[in-house]
Design a protein around this nucleic acid. Structure first.
Lengths: 150, 150
DNA sequence: CGGAATTTGTTCTAATACGAACCAATGCAA
DNA sequence: TTGCATTGGTTCGTATTAGAACAAATTCCG
């Protein structure tokens, strides 16, 4: 019995995690594309909606988009006239990203629509189940972070 | 109170899901790269290990890699001499993918190592917790699939 | 005050990622 | 058996994706 033939116990948990994430991305992504946006672009629009805007750093943290990637996503949204970049008055390193009037219009058109779409799927789990799920996922995330810094 | 300003209840669950997946990918990915492979390449090697090989279709289903992407991943692994492609005898449409001797050696070198690394993080959750987590994730995946086909 | 360490965003490279179009091989049905 | 829909992989175009190197601005500290 060689060690590399043993089947690790965590694999089924990991499989469920990856399958669930991918199932969401397919489900959500297909709908978002119908609305004329990529998933990353939608995330940015949705995050900027109903705010005064924010820096690239904050936007990246909220959308989970790496800063290197974010530059390109913002480039394409800016080319379509959906967002604006302004240098921050207080800190010239920071860019303040905000929706244009066109961006706000787009947000109002696609956001409620997409929320309804995604809600239909999440409704299959009760509030209690979602709470439990969230707790376990957070514990696991924290485990990765902790083990990473050792 | 406009509908697009309401904050959907599912968002915190979704956030946990995406954060957990991304935390895993950072944790696992960084380690895999140290071993000289990309995450996708490692998935392929790990899936082919201890098997007689399989078709692209099956390999794609197990690794969750889309067929269009899989071609490129296999190209690069083949260029490094880690895998072989052979036309299936019974069905000339199918390719049979398998590890070369070099590929097997690589598998034996990196797989147990990486399994140990990932196990350390998953050990933060008990078996019971992982069971519950898996059940909820599966329910949610199924929800996306069901709603998608309607 | 002044230089070093940090922070923020851009740029670059290699590798996914996905959908759509495409081709060859197979299966099915009239 | 001929014709057509289906299946398995490749190719193509566009858009991420991560990581590392980089430049400009700011902060920290002696």
């Amino acid at each position: 019995m060689q060690p590399h033939q043993r089947k690790p116990a965590y694999l089924s948990t990991l499989r469920s995690l990856m399958r669930c994430t991918q199932a969401f991305e397919r489900y959500s992504g297909a709908h978002v594309r119908e609305l004329g946006l990529t998933p990353a672009q939608f995330d940015v629009i949705a995050t900027l909606g109903n705010t005064e805007g924010m820096t690239c750093k904050e936007l990246g943290e909220r959308t989970l988009i790496t800063k290197g990637t974010l530059t390109g996503v913002l480039d394409r949204l800016a080319a379509r006239g959906m967002i604006e970049r302004h240098v921050d008055r207080n800190d010239a390193r920071c860019l303040h990203i905000s929706l244009t009037a066109q961006g706000v219009a787009l947000f109002r058109k696609v956001f409620p629509n997409h929320v309804q779409h995604v809600e239909r799927a999440f409704a299959h789990l009760s509030d209690q189940e979602q709470n439990t799920l969230r707790e376990h996922l957070t514990r696991l995330s924290d485990a990765f972070e902790e083990e990473r810094h050792r």
